[in-house]
Amino acid sequence: ETLLNLIEAEKNDQQVVGKVEDDGYVTTESFFASGSLLAHTIYKPVSTTIGKPLLIAHGFLGSRILWDSVARAITKATNRVVITFDTRHHGDSPCLPELAYELMVDDVLNLTHHLKIKKFSVLGHSTGGNTLMAFALKHSEMIEKMVVVDVSPFGLKPIIQPYVEAAKKITSILENSSSSSFLETKEMVDTALEKFNLEPAMKAYMLANLVNMDGKLVWYGKPSLDVIIRNYDKLVEFPKELLDYKFGGPTLFIKGENSGFISKSSFATTQNIFTNAQLSVVPNAGHFPHAQNFEGFMLTLLPFISA
């Protein structure tokens, strides 16, 4: 009832847009002009809802829109409510100054309180996976099932470090290119990013956030370059105080076949914390298996969340 009411609600500084889709479900987008509540989209079947809601958290430098196709496919296949959200300082969510996992866990908790959901499943990719692993360890009674995509509590530094180094390089170029034109500066950035071996999709995202403003190249994305650089140490380390906790709920780790971010040794250690965890591999995919092999990803995901 609460989720349906959101479609009609418009209170305080909340902006709500509801749309009935042709294939039998409703999407509801919620944005907040102030405060700390996360922007989110709800995908709800028009027919009877089956099962607990599923919350999806995107990865570093991402946004909830990147999970739109997955959310629609899950809702259509399982008749369950799916909620995607933008983490702090990403997408349409508030630009809160700190990017610490402990704070992002509280953000998710606040969102579930707002939506009045007490039991749900979660799916998180990259840093979103770390946030939801931390959430499951702190609030295990709220989690039905968990899916973690291409990350472990011990493998985030190699994922994030190249992008932080790239952010530092972009900052340096922008600060020292006052006499260069927009096109000259963009060419310098493009050439510089080649050295960091970034995922093609992420490199394209970083370049897309560089825009022409009065003939000069400026970063217009979220998070801002200074936030990326300043919060590096907090993002590459899983909260150490949680490593003594246990989560025994059904947990599926999904890795891309060509990704090295979940090793056999790190997964064995991960199973000491997530004691009911299994690992599946999506073929012909790297760090973004949901985008690089959508069909293979869904074939791996759906049986687990539907069981």
Rank of each mutant, 00 (worst) to 15 (best):
P223E: 01
A192V: 10
E199I: 10
V281Y: 03
F294I: 12
F294R: 12
Y205E: 14
H113F: 00
P303D: 08
S179F: 03
T48S: 08
P200E: 08
E102M: 05
H114D: 07
H90F: 08
G24C: 08
G124F: 10
A285V: 13
L137A: 12
K234V: 08
N176T: 14
M188A: 14
K138F: 00
L4F: 04
L207P: 00
I56W: 03
E10D: 12
K240E: 13
S179Y: 03
M146V: 10
T270Q: 06
K203W: 04
D214A: 13
G35Q: 10
L61R: 12
E102V: 09
D190A: 13
V282L: 06
E21T: 11
P239C: 14
S47D: 07
V20P: 00
H139V: 07
N231S: 06
I159E: 15
L217H: 06
S69P: 00
E21Y: 03
T87A: 10
T84N: 06
C95P: 05
I273R: 01
F60W: 14
L301R: 08
S306C: 08
V149Y: 04
Q271P: 00
G35T: 08
L210H: 02
L38H: 02
T185Y: 05
S126E: 03
E194W: 01
L96C: 10
L6C: 12
A208T: 12
Q15W: 02
V148H: 12
S126Y: 01
F60T: 14
L6I: 11
A307V: 06
D233L: 09
I65K: 15
L103Y: 04
D68I: 00
L252V: 01
K195H: 06
L235A: 06
L252A: 01
P200A: 08
L235G: 04
V218R: 14
V108C: 06
L225H: 13
T131W: 00
T2Q: 06
V26F: 04
G59M: 11
L137S: 10
F261K: 08
E10V: 12
N276P: 00
A33K: 13
P158M: 15
V108P: 05
I42L: 05
K264E: 13
V282K: 03
P158T: 15
S30H: 02
K234M: 12
F267D: 04
H58V: 11
K203C: 10
A77G: 10
F274K: 09
L3C: 01
V236K: 13
N79S: 15
S181M: 04
A9Q: 11
F182R: 04
A39W: 01
V16K: 03
A166K: 09
A167G: 12
E257F: 05
T27Q: 08
M142Q: 14
I50S: 09
D23N: 13
N5W: 01
T48H: 05
P153A: 13
E257G: 05
S265M: 06
D244V: 10
V147P: 05
N130L: 13
P239G: 14
